[in-house]
């Protein structure tokens, strides 16, 4: 049977990991590729690089990162962060990225999802949704959760699927950074309403939070960043725990 995936996420600026790490033994502390290789060695099923370089250089740094990662890693990886055009998607995929993650630009221009899926296939189009509770449902937010787009997360996820998204990267802005566990209700709602895989993100904390998001939240994959960066758990720790709880993982 298909296994559940564990995906470390690296925020990268000019090729360096932004959030601090506790890997004091890394030769070049903060080097994104070196950290990625470490996670690969721990059994990560995929990796996500979010390039947050804030200048006009971002496009170049993201492509350089994709190219380097493709030479060093033989597992799938996604590159995201500020991608706005079909040309940039093409360049990232040609450089060796397996998937691109679209967020704000897809909200502004949903045709970008369709164009990318038609040209390169749905399998490489991940639509990232930052969701925040708004009464009985969840809204779609941008700018790190500060700006409400007015969109409903479930309707937007369904629209993204219709337009050709291959996967949804669903982040709970309520849980992000809290370590209180994933938003099970949100994840389950979106995952059960779609026929494409959902990657749950935001709130990873205890080992049991991973089991919960798969068993109760019906997620297909779980993403975490600081938990792995700070060495609270290794990817291997999480997978070992999941396996002992009867969840199928790649070991």
């Amino acid at each position: 049977m298909l296994t559940k995936r564990i995906i470390p996420c690296l925020d990268v600026k000019d090729g360096m990991v932004v959030k601090g790490t506790n890997f004091v033994d890394l030769k070049h502390a903060g080097d994104a590729i070196e950290l990625a290789k470490r996670y690969n060695g721990q059994g990560a099923d995929e990796l996500v690089f979010l390039d947050i370089t804030a200048s006009h250089e971002r496009r170049k740094t993201a492509i350089a990162l994709a190219s380097k990662a493709a030479q060093e890693l033989f597992i799938p990886f996604t590159v995201g962060g500020g991608i706005t055009s079909i040309e940039e998607i093409r360049d990232l995929l040609s450089a060796g990225a397996d998937k691109v993650s679209l967020n704000t630009s897809a909200i502004k221009n949903p045709d970008l999802i369709k164009d990318a899926a038609n040209r390169f296939g749905s399998q490489c189009v991940v639509v990232a949704i930052d969701a925040k509770r708004r009464g009985d449902s969840w809204g779609v937010f941008v700018k790190g959760g500060r700006e409400d787009t007015g969109l409903d997360a479930l309707s937007w996820a369904k629209q993204a699927e219709r337009m050709g998204a291959g996967e949804i990267l669903l982040t709970s802005m309520d849980r992000d950074g809290t370590k209180e566990g994933f938003d099970i209700e949100l994840t389950r709602k979106i995952s059960e309403s779609l026929s494409i895989p959902v990657i749950a993100s935001g709130g990873a904390g205890s080992l049991s939070s991973f089991a919960e998001v798969f068993q109760k939240g019906k997620a297909d994959a779980a993403l975490a960043a600081s938990l792995f960066h700070y060495g609270t758990f290794t990817v291997g720790d999480v997978k070992k725990y999941l396996k002992s709880n009867g969840i199928e993982i790649r070991d």
């Binding site: 298909l2 559940k4 026929s195």
Partner: peptide, 11 residues
Amino acid sequence: KGKVPQIGWNR
């Protein structure tokens, strides 16, 4: 059956 496409690691 299941989610389509199948995406991920399988035995």
